[in-house]
């Protein structure tokens, strides 16, 4: 009798765990289905901004954030930094991938003090996946 009760209880636990798991998997399928049917597919749209300018030993570190506002990932994203009215060549950093709606951070290093007014940061380009 005890063994039968134990077996029944174990079955109940198994079915409860199974039902909860089924609900979670169904939610995943509904989410992906909703995105597949109603989700917009805009190409990668990259926006770069200066997050922080930090003086450091012998120069300045300029941290930038790049946000992909599009619905597709971008690969080999290059960001260029140049100083206005300066003859020094542009500096460039490259992000391997930036996913849709994702934010990535990177930094430029300058051997001298810089500020917002003299700094020009632009997206150089990217490739589609």
């Amino acid at each position: 009798m005890d063994a039968e009760m134990k077996d029944r209880r174990q079955r109940a636990v198994e079915w409860t765990v199974g039902a909860l798991s089924g609900v979670l998997v169904l939610c995943l399928i509904l989410f992906l289905g909703h995105e597949a049917v109603f989700g917009e597919v805009q190409p990668a749209r990259l926006v770069v901004s200066i997050a922080e300018i930090e003086p450091m030993d012998g120069g300045t570190m300029v941290t930038v954030t790049v946000m992909n506002q599009g619905d597709k990932a971008a690969a080999a994203v290059t960001v260029n930094a140049s100083l206005k009215e300066a003859t020094a060549p542009d500096k460039q950093i490259e992000f391997d991938y930036i996913a849709a709606h994702a934010v990535r951070r990177g930094a430029f290093l300058f051997p001298h003090p810089v500020n917002h007014t003299v700094l020009d940061i632009q997206i150089g380009g990217f490739t589609e996946l």
Partner: peptide
């Protein structure tokens, strides 16, 4: 830094 879609 990934959005919910990319995370899923």
């Amino acid at each position: 830094g990934l959005h919910l879609d990319s995370l899923v």
